Simulated scan of single mutants.
Amino acid sequence: MDAVQVSKPLRILKLPYVALRNIIMNLDQLEVLDFSFISKKCRSIIKSTKFANFTVKLNMQTAQCPFAFIRERKTICEFSTEILKTRNRYMNGGRIALSQYSNDGEGICIECAKIWGDYICDIFRIDIDTLDLEPNQSVEKMISIAEWLNKRQSSLRCCYFYGTETNSDSLDRFFETADFSIQKLVLLLNQTYKISPLSPKILNVNCLWASSKNWRHLIDWITVEHILASNCVTLWIEASSFHENDLNRFIKGWLNGNNPTMEFFHVIVKRLDPDLLFDGIRYEEKDNSLIRNYDCKAVGVQYEFKGGFDIRRSDGRVATLQQKTHLQNPCQIYHFAMIVWPNVISM
């Protein structure tokens, strides 16, 4: 009877650097995490490795995996709360109580998320790219997460708030506390009750996308005063309570020098009366045969301007305004859009 051949363990730490690097580069993110726990040397090796491009998302929504690794808009690996719990003994000497991870199916607690977030970002030498939060978190929790991000990074590419319950005080305190810049802010607030206008600081972002479910839950928590004072490049607002006088103020504000960085503005409204909309505004109406396109990469939309109304600011910048609707539109919902053309300085 032949003896069973027992393979010898591969002592990968004894391998030359190039061979060791090739092995590590073929590990997935969870395997990399586990490798880093073996020893200080292993953690140092991981930190010295340049991995293929991916981003990290921290998701604090109920019943969601707290950490996800994203490449080309696809999730390639996730760390669930259970995965983190089973590795609890490696974090701060296991001083995090397992009961602290979550409560009754809720998302990961903020303190655990901060500890794990710091460790994950450290070994992969990367910042949090995307943050998903529920808009009904307590004021204390919102301040805590904002203060943590203030200390660990200077910017956040994308921040999502979505849910059916909203605590406007908590949202205000988050943005008032946050010192880091936000490139894209998405507010999907679907509460069925009225909330107060949010802090003007929500407009201190490159792109704002604000959405509500339908016309019964209008977005009245973003006002014209918000828009006039904003530094946004892209503003995309759905189901808004704006009317002709509001948009007239916005257009005149732009003509007078407000919103100097704005490139694209979109809002869904009821049908607008052109006479009221353009009251006191000089414009040039373009024929519908003139078709101009704008690639709004921030929200992933190719927007077509067919004809429209051109206006010019005193510095020569030209913008086109358009009101359009779909053929089947029983609710009489209209898309009002304004594009500031980047290379046009005359009319």
Rank of each mutant, 00 (worst) to 15 (best):
T166E: 06
T192S: 11
H243D: 12
N214S: 14
T223W: 02
T166W: 01
R157H: 14
I182A: 05
W209K: 09
W254N: 04
L188C: 13
H226V: 01
F175A: 04
W215A: 10
I202L: 04
S168F: 02
F174E: 05
K252I: 07
E147G: 05
N231R: 13
D179K: 15
F250C: 11
L171V: 15
N214T: 08
C207N: 08
F250E: 04
N231Y: 09
W215T: 10
V233T: 15
I195G: 01
L208S: 02
W209M: 09
A239W: 08
Q191D: 14
N245C: 10
S199W: 02
K213N: 12
I195K: 00
W215C: 06
V186W: 11
K201N: 07
F180C: 05
W209N: 10
C232S: 09
T166D: 05
I219G: 03
T192C: 08
S212W: 01
L208M: 10
H243C: 12
E225W: 03
A210G: 13
N204W: 00
G257F: 14
K151G: 11
N190L: 07
W221S: 00
S230N: 06
Y160T: 01
T166V: 15
I237S: 00
R216W: 13
C159V: 15
H243P: 00
D169H: 09
T166H: 04
E165A: 10
S230E: 04
F250H: 08
K201A: 10
C207K: 00
L156W: 02
T192Q: 08
N256W: 11
S168A: 14
D172K: 09
N245T: 14
R173I: 12
C159R: 02
I251W: 03
N206H: 07
E238V: 09
S155V: 02
L228R: 02
C158G: 09
W254T: 09
Q153V: 09
R216L: 14
Q183S: 13
K184Y: 12
N190P: 00
S199G: 07
K151A: 13
D169F: 06
L149W: 04
P197T: 04
F161G: 01
L198M: 13
I251H: 03
K213T: 13
N245P: 00
N206K: 07
S154G: 12
S170F: 06
D246E: 12
N190H: 10
D220G: 05
D169N: 11
I219V: 15
S168Y: 09
L185Y: 05
S181M: 06
V186D: 12
S196N: 09
G253S: 08
R173D: 12
N248L: 08
F175H: 01
R249T: 15
N245S: 14
S241Y: 08
I251Q: 02
